[in-house]
Design a protein around this nucleic acid. Structure first.
Length: 107
DNA sequence: TTGTTGACTCTGA
DNA sequence: CTCAGAGCCAACA
């Protein structure tokens, strides 16, 4: 089982992402504000996430309501595909409605 | 400790 | 998809 091989900050971020239910999404900025860091750091944490983890990384998108393109490859295509499977629909601009799909973390 | 890099966000034009 | 520039924090060499 995945052990604590991540820093406390990363673990906190991942734990937060795990609370997002299927069919909903959250933004880097929301997580950043919740854990007390910047959006870049959250994105960096997602990039460091190993493939096959129990973290629904696909539910994390940018403030524009779109999937952020990665430098690595076409993982964003997969991400969008996974979200559509969960019932999230994108419009013609490849964006989704955060008012409807955005998840608000409970305090 | 310094410099580089990154799945971001905001603002101005 | 409007586009470009600056700010921001953490990981890594």
């Amino acid at each position: 089982m995945p052990r604590k091989k991540f820093s406390l900050l990363y673990s906190t971020i991942y734990d937060l992402v795990r609370k997002v239910p299927p069919g909903y999404v959250t933004t880097y900025g929301q997580i950043a504000q919740r854990v007390g860091c910047t959006a870049r750091t959250v994105g960096f944490a997602m990039a460091a996430l190993p493939h096959g983890s129990n973290v629904p990384w696909q539910r994390v998108i940018n403030s524009q309501g779109k999937v952020s393109p990665r430098t690595d490859g076409d993982g964003n295509i997969l991400q969008r595909n996974l979200l559509e499977i969960e019932g999230i629909q994108f419009d013609q601009k490849a964006q989704l409605n955060l008012d409807r799909y955005g998840w608000i973390f409970l305090k």
